[in-house]
Design a protein around this nucleic acid. Structure first.
Length: 443
DNA sequence: TGGCATGATTCGGT
DNA sequence: ACCGAATCATGCCA
């Protein structure tokens, strides 16, 4: 910094008196209007004074102060000052216009924009990683994207912190240096002519110098963010298959909700959690969005080629039917021991995947009648859903176009879309009692 | 290595 | 915001 300072100081005012006059052993060249008619004595005087000025730096501070005071009080000081003013006026012309207001650097603007977009510069997004982590810990559902990329966020936060610390350091240094130079110039302006404009220009030079350093900082920060991005966010696209267990869980849900395979937010969360727990921790977590993706893909691919999924559907239908039967048996047993006036006790609203019979509780039986108040009724709809493929094979049920089949009030309609895809069955079902629960919208 | 399976992304529509 | 549809990109297997 000292060398830099010296270099800047060297350019102060654009005039190097030493080089021009003193060190060369020559007297100050006579300015216009002053042709040196006062004689050699005065020239010598000026030469002495200049020499004294130039040698100040070699002396101790106290000595220099004394010398300076002496100079200021010198009888020739006003005359010398006016001479210097004139020299300044002349040389100033060549400087003027050389350093005009430069337009904002496009590259710097790009860097600024990028840093802003990446959340490194500007207001912190989402309260930072610490806040995000705290929020996630409080909610207890580590399934959203913020958690999925918590590592990325943490790293980004680190970069952000370093960037701001460095930026602050630079700004502080810049301010300190500017203040220092300004004080120096003000001090010098007592012995040599320095206009406020010149000081301003000097400050501009310093700021430009510092902003070029800042640009380097911004550049390296951008690079760091880019590297981070490629390591984390872009890695999202790298596909890794879900584990068998996870696919099984998702398929179970899908085929047991074939009439309306649109899991609610809660169901998705539950599924994501379930999959992540079941799946070995080596594999990455199946997030909320992964579940959404999976169901999106599944719906579209199932619809596109139902025949291809027939076998799979049957498999899961049978599997779920067994579960449902077990659940029904348990429920019957339960109803015998418990009061029949307490329906759904202990099972309503619980999202229990292995016991998928509890998952779809619209209380509709095969004929569309309701089983209000009977717990076993809760399992019927899921049986309808999961057994549809089995039935269809023997009773000519067309899963894709059989929207009006008596076996299914839902399913794919003639347009190729799922009926009730936008309207929850609990809303349109005329037979559903107020106490009934659709697990898709509960939990 | 080619082809299929599949998770992720993009885009337009509602 | 969510969905369907198309597409991309990668994993997996014969």
């Amino acid at each position: 910094m000292d060398a830099e300072q010296a270099r800047i100081m060297q350019t102060l005012g654009g005039v190097n008196l030493a080089a021009h006059s003193v060190q060369g052993g020559m007297a100050l060249p006579p300015p216009h209007g002053h042709d040196g008619t006062d004689g050699d004595g005065r020239k010598q005087d000026i030469g002495d004074i200049l020499h004294q000025i130039m040698t100040i730096t070699d002396q101790s501070l106290d000595e220099a102060q004394a010398k300076k005071h002496g100079l200021n009080c010198h009888r020739m000081k006003p005359a010398l000052f006016s001479v210097l003013c004139e020299i300044k006026e002349k040389t100033g012309l060549s400087i003027r216009g050389a350093q005009e207001e430069d337009p904002p650097d496009p590259q710097l603007m790009r860097l600024d924009n990028m840093l802003l977009a990446e959340g490194v510069a500007g207001p912190e997004k989402g309260g930072g990683s610490a806040a995000a982590a705290a929020a996630a810990a409080a909610s207890g559902s580590p399934t959203d994207n913020s958690i999925e990329h918590s590592d990325y966020r943490a790293k980004l936060s680190q970069i952000r912190q370093i960037y701001h610390t460095e930026l602050e350091k630079y700004e502080q240094a810049c301010n300190e240096f500017t203040t220092h130079v300004m004080n120096l110039l003000r001090e010098q302006s007592r012995t040599r002519p320095i206009s406020p404009k010149e000081i301003e220009r000097m400050v501009g030079i310093i700021h430009r110098k510092f902003s070029s350093i800042q640009m380097q900082l911004k550049q390296s920060t951008c690079e760091a963010v880019m590297i981070l991005r490629s390591r984390f966010l872009d890695a999202r696209r790298k596909r890794r298959n879900f584990s068998k267990q996870a696919t099984e869980i998702l398929n179970e849900y899908f085929y047991s909700h074939l009439s309306n395979p649109y899991p609610s937010e809660e169901a998705k969360e539950e599924l994501a959690k379930k999959c992540s727990i079941t799946v070995s921790q080596v594999r990455r977590d199946i997030s909320f969005s992964s579940v959404s993706n999976w169901f999106g893909n599944k719906r579209i691919r199932y619809k596109k080629n139902i025949g291809k999924f027939q076998e799979e559907a049957n498999l899961y239908a049978a599997k779920t039917a067994v579960n449902a039967a077990h659940a029904a048996a348990a429920a019957v047993q339960n109803s015998q021991t418990n009061s029949p006036t307490t329906p759904n006790s202990g099972s309503s609203g619980s999202f229990n995947l292995p016991n998928s019979g509890d998952m779809f509780m619209s209380m509709q039986n095969l004929n569309g009648d309701s089983y209000q108040g009977a717990q076993v009724g809760a399992n019927v709809q899921s049986q309808v859903d999961t057994l549809r493929h089995v039935i269809s094979q023997t009773a000519g049920y067309n899963d894709a176009l059989g929207g009006n089949s008596m076996y299914s009030p839902h399913g794919l309609n003639a347009n190729g879309g799922w009926q009730d895809a936008t309207t929850p069955s609990s809303v349109i079902s005329p037979t559903e009692g107020p106490g009934s629960v659709h697990s898709d919208t509960s939990n």
